[in-house]
Simulated scan of single mutants.
Amino acid sequence: MLDERPDRRTVLADAAIDVLSESGMRGLTHRAVDRTAGLPSGTTSAYFRTRQALLTALVRRLVALDQAELQAIGEATPVPRDAEELTAGLAAFCSGRLTGEGRRRTLARYACAIESVHHAELREILVPRENAGRRTVVEFLSREGVRDAEERTLTLLTCVDGLVFDRLVNGGAVTEEEIGGLVASALR
């Protein structure tokens, strides 16, 4: 039987995500990660000697978690039959990004995106990747006759991401009406 407990580096990266989402970039310290992970002082610095090494591990973990989630969504979701179905799916995804586990990771991701302006290696890790969720949108737009479906998908998903960012900063929910407007624009 395989041991299914996460390795120590994963535990520390997950704790770092929690610290970053709760305390911001200034609060992300080795000591804070040790406390959050419930590990002895010095554990984080033994695995990640520098703050940059800790931040890189955190970003890699965020991307891995996001990619796994997007892959699972895409595999479990057939290509939408119409714009309303795509709108409902994107609205549900936004709702998850604004609450619970999704909120924590999204706050950390945005903080890392800002930090990546000063650290090219983080920017490289955060580059949007191909996944089943993105392919589902591309397939839908292609089926609807959109010639530049790849580009429109990127624009649509970037706009959706912007709505999520706005609601995290300013409060409120992303509405189906807002998402519907973005989907309609992508279809034009």
Rank of each mutant, 00 (worst) to 15 (best):
L2D: 12
L2C: 07
E4V: 14
R8P: 11
V11L: 03
A13D: 09
D14Q: 07
D14R: 14
A16M: 06
D18Q: 15
V19M: 02
L20R: 13
L20Y: 09
L20P: 12
S21H: 05
S23P: 05
R26D: 15
G27K: 10
L28K: 13
A32W: 05
T36A: 10
G38D: 02
G38P: 04
P40Q: 07
T43R: 02
T44S: 12
T44E: 04
S45W: 08
A46N: 14
F48N: 04
F48K: 07
R49T: 07
R51V: 05
R51L: 02
R51Y: 08
A53P: 04
T56G: 09
L58K: 10
L58C: 13
V59F: 08
V59D: 05
R60E: 10
R61V: 01
L62Y: 10
L62W: 08
V63K: 14
A64V: 13
L65G: 12
D66L: 13
D66R: 15
A68Y: 12
E69V: 12
E69R: 15
G74P: 08
A76P: 11
V79L: 04
V79C: 00
P80H: 10
P80N: 08
P80L: 08
E85Y: 05
L86W: 07
G89H: 11
A92I: 06
F93W: 15
F93Y: 15
F93H: 15
C94G: 07
S95I: 08
S95Q: 14
S95N: 13
G96L: 06
R97I: 06
T99H: 14
G102K: 10
G102L: 06
R103I: 05
R104L: 14
T106Q: 13
R109F: 07
R109G: 13
Y110S: 15
A111E: 12
C112A: 15
C112W: 02
C112Y: 09
A113F: 11
E115F: 06
S116L: 02
H118E: 15
H119S: 15
H119I: 11
E121T: 13
L122A: 02
L122Y: 01
L122Q: 02
R123K: 09
R123T: 03
L126Y: 11
R129I: 09
R129K: 12
R129Q: 12
E130V: 06
E130A: 08
E130H: 05
N131I: 11
A132W: 01
R135P: 00
R135K: 00
V137G: 02
V137C: 05
F140M: 01
L141M: 03
S142L: 03
S142W: 00
R143E: 04
G145K: 11
V146S: 09
R147K: 11
A149W: 01
E150A: 15
E151M: 12
T158P: 12
T158V: 14
C159I: 13
D161H: 10
D161R: 13
G162N: 13
V164C: 09
F165K: 12
R167H: 03
R167P: 05
L168V: 03
N170S: 15
A173P: 04
V174K: 00
V174F: 01
V174M: 00
T175C: 06
E176N: 04
E176F: 06
E177P: 01
G180D: 03
V183W: 01
A184T: 12
S185C: 13
R188T: 08
